[in-house]
Computed example of a mutant assay.
Amino acid sequence: MGEALRVLIADDHDDFRHGLEALLAAAPSIDVVGTASDGAMAVALSLDLQPDVILMDLHMPRLNGVEATARIVQSSPHIGVVVLTMMEDQESVFAAVRAGARGYLLKGARRAEITRAVAAVGAGEVIFGPGIADQVMAYFAAARARPAADAFPELTERERVVLGLIAEGKENGEIARQLSLSIKTVRNHASNIFAKLQVAHRAQAIVKARDAGLGQDF
């Protein structure tokens, strides 16, 4: 068994934060290394403690969860942020994804869902809770493969095509077949795209592409 995931909890509600701490502390693969009661404290502690995963509320004093997430991911992109909030509107979901969150759960989530999400994000995955996942998939499915003509000038033409297919929701294997490329080549293109766009993961790249007008109808 590998080392326990180091987790930081950020929530301004004391009872909820303590409940989360007890829940995660009971999981053998998770080590709660700190707690924060506001966004500014979450940023400071994350930079100091360098946890693997942060459970982040969105509505907090001093600094909201979206801005805290953006600051943390910008300075420590290896830290996986899982948003755990009451807010399920699309604006909040995608603001969190744009900021670099790798997961989004509602506070009504079952205990097993929360621990599973922490483990998944700690392993490098992106995870969305039920209902939230439906919103995300509907948003991504609206994308088309044609990149906007003036979008992302830092990308090569081939990278723009790959990004367009990523924005359509296609996985690397499907993109490789469509473009007659090896999966390794597509993976390299995707890594270059993420680096150039300064995004932490696939979901964030898709949102950024859509924001820039990628995939508008002809």
Results as ranks from 00 to 15, higher is better:
residue 207 V to C: 00
residue 197 L to S: 02
residue 90 Q to H: 03
residue 122 G to C: 01
residue 75 S to V: 14
residue 91 E to R: 15
residue 179 L to T: 02
residue 69 T to Q: 08
residue 104 Y to H: 08
residue 104 Y to D: 00
residue 143 A to R: 06
residue 125 E to F: 12
residue 64 N to C: 01
residue 105 L to K: 05
residue 73 V to A: 09
residue 36 A to V: 02
residue 165 L to Q: 15
residue 167 A to T: 11
residue 34 G to D: 09
residue 67 E to I: 13
residue 190 A to S: 11
residue 133 A to P: 01
residue 207 V to S: 03
residue 137 M to W: 13
residue 44 A to I: 06
residue 17 R to F: 07
residue 77 P to V: 05
residue 52 D to W: 15
residue 18 H to R: 11
residue 2 G to T: 10
residue 97 V to T: 00
residue 26 A to P: 02
residue 7 V to F: 06
residue 46 S to G: 04
residue 74 Q to S: 14
residue 22 A to C: 12
residue 146 R to I: 11
residue 86 M to I: 04
residue 143 A to T: 02
residue 151 A to T: 13
residue 217 D to E: 15
residue 165 L to R: 15
residue 105 L to Q: 02
residue 84 L to P: 01
residue 98 R to Q: 11
residue 79 I to D: 05
residue 218 F to V: 13
residue 85 T to C: 00
residue 79 I to T: 06
residue 202 R to C: 03
residue 7 V to A: 07
residue 213 G to Q: 03
residue 64 N to H: 08
residue 81 V to H: 00
residue 67 E to Y: 10
residue 28 P to K: 09
residue 42 A to V: 07
residue 207 V to R: 08
residue 50 Q to K: 15
residue 26 A to I: 09
residue 72 I to W: 14
residue 30 I to K: 13
residue 9 I to W: 03
residue 156 T to D: 14
residue 88 E to H: 09
residue 136 V to M: 09
residue 51 P to Q: 09
residue 167 A to Y: 10
residue 119 A to M: 15
residue 119 A to P: 12
residue 170 K to G: 03
residue 24 L to W: 07
residue 9 I to Y: 01
residue 43 V to L: 12
residue 13 H to F: 05
residue 184 K to G: 05
residue 206 I to F: 11
residue 51 P to G: 04
